[in-house]
Amino acid sequence: YPSGSLVGFALDDHGLPVFCFSTMSSHTKDLLASNSGGKAALCVTAKGFEGAADGRVTLIGDVKRCSKEEVEKDGLRELYKTKHPNAFWADFGDFSFFRMEELKAVNFVGGFARAGSIKPEDYMETSVDPIQAFAAPVMGHMNDDHSSSTIAMVQHYIGLPQVEKAELVQLDRLGFMVQCTRLGQTFKLRLPFPRAAESRKDVKTLIVEMTQTSLANAEVQSYLQGLAAKEEAAEVA
């Protein structure tokens, strides 16, 4: 049976994973075995992955060892070391580059009750989400300075009251994931944008619109006022 392993990878221009493996590793030997045909599956988890409620995607295909000519021609060494700048082992003689050259299937799970398959050709023709370039600072700003707005949006759009804490943990052009604390439990929820965002300005506009709509809800306003009063009382105590 083939063995599983935790590996690093980089993506080429078509979104196909490129690896740098030691010839002594068991997973490398499995890929090179004459009866395997290089069949492999790569499961990539979302940043901050904790469990079944978090997103992951599995790429299934044939992984082939790259020739020295291919490594040079396609700049695979530079590609990998750009993604993994501390990968000094990439220059060792017993390490070789591999690439998933033929993608057979793409399986996506976005969390509970959110799963599906993506056609390989659709995956290879897509582009990187434009929001990823600035998602981290936007989420940091929301979590540091506007956590009450996030609580308001969760209550208004999801219909979930009594949320004590809410933090953005993932942001993309279609919406964001929120980690909530409520009645002693911590879990994650997805809030979609009313329309797709293509820029940082779009994200700000959409969040402001959603916040204003949420704060117009009298029940939301009342809950936030009570929550603020509790926090002030706790600080005084």
Rank of each mutant, 00 (worst) to 15 (best):
Q185F: 12
H141V: 05
H84F: 12
A197H: 05
Y1P: 12
G111E: 09
I158Q: 08
A234K: 15
T23D: 13
Q179W: 02
R65T: 01
V169S: 07
L16H: 09
F97N: 03
G15S: 08
K230M: 13
Q212I: 02
V178C: 15
M153E: 07
A152K: 03
Y157C: 04
Q185M: 12
L183C: 04
K73E: 15
H141P: 00
T205F: 06
G75E: 05
Q185A: 14
K68E: 15
N86C: 03
F176C: 14
Q155D: 00
L160C: 05
F92A: 11
E235F: 12
K39F: 10
D54Y: 02
G4V: 04
N107G: 06
K47N: 11
E232C: 07
K64D: 12
R99V: 06
K39M: 10
Q225E: 14
L16K: 14
W89E: 11
L76V: 03
V109Y: 03
E231N: 11
F97I: 05
E235A: 15
V71Y: 07
E102Y: 10
T45I: 06
A216H: 11
S222Q: 14
T126S: 15
P161V: 01
M142R: 01
F193I: 09
A237G: 15
F19Y: 09
F112W: 13
K83H: 07
L42H: 04
T205S: 15
A115E: 13
M100I: 10
H141D: 11
G8K: 08
V44Y: 04
G116C: 08
Y157L: 13
V106F: 11
F134K: 09
L11G: 02
R65L: 13
P137R: 06
G110I: 04
A237V: 03
G110N: 10
L42M: 13
S117M: 12
T211L: 08
T150H: 01
S127Y: 10
S34C: 02
R114W: 04
S5R: 08
P120M: 10
G4C: 11
K201L: 13
P85A: 04
T23V: 14
G159M: 06
Q179V: 01
D122C: 09
V128K: 12
G140S: 12
P130V: 09
V220A: 03
N143R: 07
K188I: 03
L168Q: 05
Q132K: 10
D12F: 04
E102M: 07
R77N: 03
K39L: 11
P17F: 03
L6P: 00
A40G: 05
V44P: 02
H156G: 02
